[in-house]
Design a protein around this nucleic acid. Sequence first.
DNA 1: CCAAGTGAGTTGATTTAATTAACTAAGTAT
DNA 2: ATACTTAGTTAATTAAATCAACTCACTTGG
Lengths: 149, 149
Amino acid sequence: MKERYKLPCNIAQTLNIVGDRWTLLILHDILVGNETFNELKKSLDGISANLLSDRLKHLEEAGLVASSVYSKHPPRYQYTLTDSGRELELVFDALLVWGRNNLDICYKQLVHNECQHEVELQHYCPSCKTNVDRADVSPVPVEEHQLNK
Amino acid sequence: MKERYKLPCNIAQTLNIVGDRWTLLILHDILVGNETFNELKKSLDGISANLLSDRLKHLEEAGLVASSVYSKHPPRYQYTLTDSGRELELVFDALLVWGRNNLDICYKQLVHNECQHEVELQHYCPSCKTNVDRADVSPVPVEEHQLNK
DNA sequence: CCAAGTGAGTTGATTTAATTAACTAAGTAT
DNA sequence: ATACTTAGTTAATTAAATCAACTCACTTGG
């Protein structure tokens, strides 16, 4: 966590939050509906209880996960994603699609419910109201540092 | 590397390849044009030489990075991405966009060159020839395991 | 020609992070 | 009352990453 990568780069700073071992998988698991500690632990075959516990705490501090008590005495929590946590869905989809195209053994594909055809990810310009080729977009610096919060 | 996550899931298996510390940042750095060992080392402020060396070797084995000798005696290499490495660009874009929307301090945004307007990532169905809402797509299992290679 | 500097690493020691294993505490089911 | 489940915590061990120093081949400056 604590600022591993010092680079002035969205990707590095995002990975400072979600780049630790197991972290993305935990978030993904919550996203797909595993919401209690043991559901997560069972589903994430191989994770240890203390690590899961630590990660959940950090993710809550970072504002990606929210927890609500569903039983006092003993305290039992349900973990859900916040809006920013849920926004990682695009990252998961990008990883899934990469895996679909490049893994030796692939498990999932992303399909359009209506026609069952596989979908792709594309860049869309809301101003031009069209999809644009990757070659026609560039990452450019923003001046207005300090965005949300 | 060696199969940390055992889950039958594209995301977990993809992270087995690119999920280690520094790995995605190295790949991104090569993508944006840092191609020699020292360029990478300088650009990735904080990485140690041995880790960079290890990672490059593993990424080459995994087929995401290719190296070509640009000087024998002493051997000097130039590192470039293979096709599968380059396909990670969508993952980088997804991380960049997430950072743009959720980081306290954001450095980059992704803009359409022509109109300088910020772009988004969307799901596109090549069969329907339209963009589709995330709610209208689902990850479904594939039977034909064993894809490429 | 000799010293200092650069590129591309390797080796070994230390520190940090993750895994394994055992344990607790409250409540439920048998 | 005993065993089992949920949701963890604590401590010990192992694995991974960082730090620091070193190598080796070549290049440049004096």
